[in-house]
Design a protein around this nucleic acid. Structure first.
Lengths: 162, 162
DNA sequence: CTTAATTTGGACAAAAGAGTCTGAAATCTG
DNA sequence: CAGATTTCAGACTCTTTTGTCCAAATTAAG
């Protein structure tokens, strides 16, 4: 479905969005929290900075940051920047000319799914995903438990149940 | 999305279903019509016979045939046999424990899409797809034009417009 | 029985994806 | 300025997917 690079990129940007207090977040910190290879994640995030979705800064106190408010970066942007938009446009059977004029046997069904997927990806912002992933002040049990999986360093706060 | 192997397998079975007049269809014929590497397609179809979706027969007049009526083989069966069912079950972000109890940030949206995809794949039979792909007696222009792309050997019949 | 057509099965090569490593460039701190 | 921290850029390896090739087994037809 999505490539590993893409999944890592999405998880990392969610992490950065959730840590909005830090100006620049070091890639090493993201990699160790999310248990992703540091060097590999570096490549993925370089791609996101080259695509204009993130800013980076070298040296001590450096790292990466979102280039835009987290409310303005969508899942669609992230997928498009890493895996490309073909998942939102291509025929299920990979036939180059598939379209309304020359539909493939699965055309109508797949376009329906694909369009829904596109709408969802365009609407789902980093902001929304980061909130679900659990900032420290989110105390809902389910979300907190997820947060621990994605961000192991997050510790229970008073009132949160593990 | 789907692997090349899977796409080839789907196209080939559609072709076999559309050529129901032939008892066994040689793989060489399928490969040349669909412009797929013969040896590669051979592997894919071997997989489908091992999974019980097709029968094969060696020697002259041999080839492959559907193991069941084309009304009883679904897109879900084909995808499951070649790529596996993970596309119908897995988390979008690849998180192992993602579920109702510990949903990932895209969980609710992705499961909705995934479920629709599953329903469609389970309902879409080879029979239906083969009809759309254009048997010789289908004269609808759009479907015929598609048929020529997927099955180049199919020639216009009287009344069909190229 | 011989020949040709066909699948089967395995080995192998090429390409793409995933992951690792090293050195260079930039930047902060003292 | 010196040293530490960090991204940047490229080379390299490993694995999976894709694609190619060949010999063996099976079967129909003459």
């Amino acid at each position: 479905m999505l490539s590993k690079s893409c999944i890592y990129g999405i998880q990392a940007t969610i992490y950065v969005a959730a840590n909005a207090s830090q100006e620049f977040v070091p890639i090493s910190q993201i990699a160790s929290e999310l248990k992703i290879s540091f060097h590999f994640l570096t490549k993925v995030l370089q791609q996101l900075t080259q695509e204009g979705l993130m800013n980076s800064y070298r040296g001590p106190k450096g790292g990466v940051a979102l280039a835009k408010p987290s409310t303005e970066i969508t899942l669609y942007d992230l997928i498009g920047a890493i895996d490309g938009t073909s998942i939102f446009t291509e025929c299920m059977l990979g036939l180059p000319g598939c379209g309304i004029a020359e539909p493939c046997p699965a055309h109508e069904h797949w376009t329906k799914i694909r369009n829904e997927l596109t709408v969802i990806a365009r609407r789902l912002t980093l902001d929304t995903m980061a909130k679900k992933a659990g900032e420290l002040n989110v105390r809902l049990t389910d979300e907190f438990r997820y947060a621990q999986k994605l961000f192991p360093s997050i510790k229970p706060v008073n009132g949160a149940q593990a």
